[in-house]
Design a protein around this nucleic acid. Sequence first.
DNA 1: TTCATGGATAAGTTCTCTTGATCCGTACAG
DNA 2: CTGTACGGATCAAGAGAACTTATCCATGAA
Lengths: 300, 300
Amino acid sequence: MKLSRQFPMNALRVFEAAARLLSFTKAGEELGLTQTAVSYQIKLLEDTIGEPLFLRRPRQVSLTDAGERLAPKISEAFETISDAIASTRHQSDGTLIIHTTATFASRWLAHHIGTFQLENPQIAVRMETSQETIDFSKTEADVAIRSSKSGQWPGLRSHFMMKSHFTPMLNPKLAESVGGIREPADLLKVRIIDASDPWWVLWFEAAGLPGIDLEGRPTSRFGGIQAFEAAAAIAGHGVAILKPEFYADDVALGRLYQPFDLLASDGSDYWLAYPESRRNAPKIRAFREFMRKMMPTFQD
Amino acid sequence: MKLSRQFPMNALRVFEAAARLLSFTKAGEELGLTQTAVSYQIKLLEDTIGEPLFLRRPRQVSLTDAGERLAPKISEAFETISDAIASTRHQSDGTLIIHTTATFASRWLAHHIGTFQLENPQIAVRMETSQETIDFSKTEADVAIRSSKSGQWPGLRSHFMMKSHFTPMLNPKLAESVGGIREPADLLKVRIIDASDPWWVLWFEAAGLPGIDLEGRPTSRFGGIQAFEAAAAIAGHGVAILKPEFYADDVALGRLYQPFDLLASDGSDYWLAYPESRRNAPKIRAFREFMRKMMPTFQD
DNA sequence: TTCATGGATAAGTTCTCTTGATCCGTACAG
DNA sequence: CTGTACGGATCAAGAGAACTTATCCATGAA
């Protein structure tokens, strides 16, 4: 059975307005309905309650005892409801939930999000990190930052942010200790941090040394989590293959050294994504603008 | 524009159930809808609020922060509403508003309504008297007692209660003072209380004295309000033409004397009427049963 | 692996609700 | 006291919302 049959919610809403204004016509105007519609809805409500709520006097309706009793409570309830909805909307507008990779979070977002906060003091930011691509219908998130080849997901709008290229990096002291790294092959003099990382193969190929076998060489494994590999490299445990954009600071501080300009890529890029349907939510709009400003390669 | 468009009330109702049960399917069962319908309504609500309210996890949905915040307020509002409606229904059920003629009220109802109250202690009775036939859509009333020839009104259900017949009555002492009233013509020896009352002509006709001219005779006028005429007759001011059913008490007490058994009628009868649509309201049903019991001539 | 559970989706159907036209009764102005 | 404006009721017709049926998909359990 239809819900409206059991409990005519809309009729209640109409009643509330009519009781407040003591006029069906005015209530109609307020709600964007015709007088006919109001009359119909009121009758519907009276039928389901089983009590007349209005006395139809010429040129004016007035409430019956029953209507008089009902009206204030209904008004109160509607106030509760609209307050609740408004505050839900408002509060949710006030928190931006960003899902991102751990690396992007620690290497880029952590450094720049302060600017966003400064510019949008009314928006709280919650950052969540995860390796897998999240599903917006299953995870609570407003935007996601992901690396992916196409950056196209059904139902999502996405913006290209930056190329995901990489190059070897190591502690400058470690480089010195092996007499400097002058050509790619010199890298093999030091421990390869996570030789199982597929990026190595790609980079050596780009460097003109295809088919290099890193298997069996001294290595350390970190499960492909770049932030850990970087930390190891900074500590001088070996050479890691990293995204230079993320480690410019460490290079500047002399904690990391990038021996070659050569960058390789696996074709994946960094994308910002969010549900198409929410593209106009203020907080999402604000974050998009922020990214556009902070990241030269950001694209609409 | 449709109201449901601006503010999906029904969707809120569905949301309330879904949030409480944390299941679209169960909510559907509770509301008598399919799971599909629930899914549809929730999506509708999410679209208008602009925030996802549920996380769709396999085999279970859960509330988002926004949903979590919204749910208790909505529940509260609905509780307010249903309480309000229930109490309106209940309280209105608890008061029976009877519109009646002054005469019927004072002469019959006043004597019997106590029994009704005793049998229906939960129903308060409010009596209103008026000479005109009331319009249930313009006047607050549950039932009306009226004298009328046909007893048929559009939209109303009506029950025949009693014939509206009448006969002359006077104070027994007054009758003695003129040597007794033995035949109709003897009535002319005393003052006629409200000779303008058309009932007199009818009664004299029935008594075999048609065309009697009461004009110019001593009289007292009370605007056709029987209760006043009766009071005057009891006080010994003259002879009034009254409904004997209403004055049985006064006859028994010796305050009034009915000289003839002959009753005349103008064709009007007493009817109980109420809106057809409300025939099953408990209080109306109770009053109908009461009348059936107390008034031998009452008809369904 | 298969089954059961719970939700999403698509397409079709029902029927609520809205609209627009018209009528009626009263109040108020002239 | 008459004409006009106001406010509501009623009716028929049509739009579109709400709901259903059928089907699919993903996951957790057996």
